[in-house]
């Protein structure tokens, strides 16, 4: 049977007096895609940052492959090596070429030889139609290209889990398409992913589970047909109708 890659148990996270995540439970099986939806400020990004240990949590536990990574004795660097992250603002390293961006972690963290790391990076870049850009610096690329490079960079170390944090939020509609098709391909290849997104149509199409976050609480989760087609909660319904009104929920 499918194993669980990621599991959150009653995770609580506060910034000062503000509770950002309240008793969040989440399970992400292997080869599945979980979409986090919800208004800005509902805690999606914080949840991602907690999973990647960029933020500590106040209570509860997070497990990666059954191992508690929020245990203070866990090796943070070792945990992060197994998780790939793509950020909304790409966060490519501007002083490195595309190829250097992609090979940095394999070479320095995983000790892969330069030639081997570059060969693998070029193969990945080629698969995403970016081979011609390998020697360019990030500021010469379009937003969509930069975001695809960021995805390649996250994939280059062969992560167990991929976190995509509103990766299309800074892109125009045409570029959104090219980035989302990459995510579709990754799903085909069986990559386990957690995606936070405002693209409801995409979430519906690509996700195995949809998780609606509202004010730090997982208000509703289930298969996309249920959450989008027949939401149980009034607040989910209201959120979806607002999104629909803004024209973002097209199949």
């Amino acid at each position: 049977m499918t194993a669980e890659v990621l599991r959150l148990e009653s995770v609580r996270k506060t910034f000062g007096a503000q509770v950002v995540l309240r008793d969040v439970d989440l399970a992400v099986p292997e080869h599945s895609v979980t979409a986090l939806i919800g208004a800005s400020g509902s805690g999606k990004s914080t949840l991602m940052r907690c999973v990647n240990l960029l933020e500590g949590i106040d209570d509860g536990a997070i497990f990666l492959d059954g191992e508690e990574i929020t245990d203070p004795r866990a090796d943070e660097d070792a945990v992060r090596r197994r998780i790939g992250v793509v950020f909304q603002s790409y966060n490519l390293f501007p002083h490195m070429t595309v190829l250097e961006n992609v090979t940095l972690a394999p070479r320095r963290v995983h000790g892969v030889a330069r030639a081997e790391a570059e060969a693998r990076a070029l193969e990945l870049l080629d698969r995403l139609g970016l081979a011609a850009k390998a020697k360019e610096y990030p500021d010469r690329l379009s937003g969509g290209q930069q975001q695809r490079v960021a995805i390649v960079r996250a994939l280059a170390t062969g992560p167990r889990l991929l976190l995509l944090d509103e990766i299309t939020a800074a892109l125009d509609p045409v570029l959104v398409g090219e980035v989302l098709s990459v995510v579709r391909d990754l799903k085909e290849q069986g990559m386990t992913m957690v995606i936070s997104t405002h693209e409801m149509g995409f979430a519906r199409e690509v996700a195995d589970r949809v998780c609606f976050l509202d004010d730090g609480v997982v208000l509703e989760q289930g298969p996309p047909e249920q959450v989008f087609g027949d939401p149980r909660e009034e607040r989910t319904r209201r959120f979806l109708s607002r999104v629909m009104a803004s024209g973002r929920l097209q199949g």
């Binding site: 990647n52 960029l54 660097d77 070792a78 992060r80 090596r81 998780i83 790939g84 992250v85 950020f87 603002s89 966060n91 490519l92 390293f93 501007p94 002083h95 940095l104 972690a105 320095r108 963290v109 995983h110 960079r153 996250a154 170390t157």
Partner: peptide, 28 residues
């Protein structure tokens, strides 16, 4: 800080993030 966050997310240690990501940009 997002540069450091990106570096740490890739599994680089604090020292590696400083050496390969932060310092080259800072010195320039």
């Amino acid at each position: 800080p997002s540069q450091r966050a990106a570096a740490r997310s890739l599994g680089l240690t604090n020292a590696q993030a400083m050496r390969y990501v932060v310092l080259p940009q800072a010195v320039r």
